[in-house]
Design a binder for these strands. Structure first.
Lengths: 251, 251
DNA sequence: CGCACTATTGAGTATAGTCAACCGGTGTGG
DNA sequence: CCACACCGGTTGACTATACTCAATAGTGCG
């Protein structure tokens, strides 16, 4: 029986038996995740520091605001949202994370988790003990540089969202969101034109600074224009160019 | 005569003579910048890789969108804005940078500058060749960890702004902006209650997703409520608690 | 089967944007 | 040295966009 890392009574986190150890060398996300550009022997070293995999059920927290920071998490399967919970109970979503993306980078600066990570569906992550990762970065320049690129990409992405939030109207925000998701799914090898939203209208609204009603109305409008087809969370993009079009007219 | 690093005909960048080489060991920002927590001999090593200092006049660009990425820049004196210029000429501001803060972190991921950095006043930066910095990070664990903290802090800060932009009304946005600036000036050893805005109303508006008129009206309102006193760009915070108060009521 | 959750749609409203006039300071050229 | 233009800022009137409140319906789970 494996130990339940970080498990707290209220968090139904399911540990994966140690025998099914994480292994970058046999992972299909190799080319999207940390190991990008490493030699087999280097990937071997990376494998050795990844302590375990960890499953998180839909709706459960991988970590919570205030938890001490020790690990980064690479999403292996599923999807997460990170949420900022204020005292009064209202929650704001700061990000969505899909396979191959790294969770917890913001916590390095504070030594504690600043947000809570909640699984949007049954998910699994690889646990990366950060201290040991830093050691490895010192040994493997290619890994070091790639890690810096990953952090940098996070900064870029956040600044991109800032531009969207600060400069675009509701329809352009939603359009940018759909295009971004589409690209990320395409990167993962899924269809860019047809995918399943992992989140509710309310969660999209929270992320984009809109109300759920506005998101719903916009989906209806996009649908009416013939730009998308949408049925609950299944979405098909019919006119990519039109979607691109509305984000161009930023003022 | 020193060479003009990165200088392009249209960019009036002024190089500082090599004799006045950058030196962390004698810099007053030591405790805020890269050298935090390093031993004298380690700071010595850092000094050696900093190729030069570089002055940038008010309104001039330190770098521009599309420039190849080679260096990070630590602001030594003055202030910068980073701007995203769209084809039609409109510009959106993605960040403000004060002394001790690092410019260019977003470019690591793309190998090119994603934004342009423009000096808000006559300014000076230390030039940090990134390749050599990465080498040094491999040698000095304390520097490595601190660098990761700096990148992480950038991510945190961006996500904080996302929360502001996505979740707050105009008055709360401006209040959060003032409080943030106040803290940053306090960190630098300046007064937290009284400082000079380095940017125009339009630039603040661009950053916060508001129009310059709204920013102006809000300054007038805050002033009328007795929360601040403001004269052109000189601002004095009279009631910090009241300012904090309006950002609490986030829905 | 019923309840809770998610989503859609409508009606009225508030917040911030747009357009415009005006003011004061600064710098430039006749 | 003064006139003028320009820039940054303030304020007003009107308007549009997205929010709030509310009613209704479809889905899925216990």
């Amino acid at each position: 029986m494996t130990s339940y890392r970080n498990a707290q009574p209220t968090i139904p986190v399911v540990a994966v038996p140690a025998s099914i150890k994480a292994a970058c060398s046999s992972c299909s996300l190799q080319e999207l995740c940390l190991p990008v550009g490493l030699s087999p022997s280097e990937i071997e070293k990376l494998d050795r520091i990844i302590s375990s995999r960890q499953a998180t059920r839909r709706g459960a927290s991988l970590y919570r605001t205030g938890d001490p920071f020790r690990n980064l998490y690479a999403v292996r399967a599923g999807a997460f949202k990170t949420v900022d919970l204020s005292e009064d109970g209202s929650e704001k979503i700061t990000g969505f994370y899909l396979s191959g993306e790294i969770l917890g980078l913001d916590a390095i600066s504070t030594d504690r988790q600043n947000f809570s990570a909640v699984a949007l569906e049954d998910s699994e992550v690889c646990v990366l003990p950060f201290e040991r990762l830093e050691e490895l970065l010192r040994e493997i320049p290619a890994l070091q540089h790639h890690f810096h690129k990953i952090m940098s990409r996070d900064i870029m992405r956040d600044q991109g969202l800032m531009l969207v939030l600060a400069g675009m109207k509701a329809d352009a925000r939603l359009s940018a969101f759909l295009i971004g998701l589409s690209q990320r799914f395409a990167n993962l090898g899924y269809s860019a034109m047809r995918f399943r939203l992992r989140m509710t209208r309310e969660e999209i609204g929270s992320y984009l600074g809109l109300t759920l009603e506005t998101v719903s109305r916009l989906f209806s409008r996009f649908s009416g224009e013939g730009w998308i087809r949408i049925d609950r969370r299944e979405i098909e993009i019919l006119d990519f160019t039109a979607l691109r079009g509305i984000i161009e007219v930023r003022e």
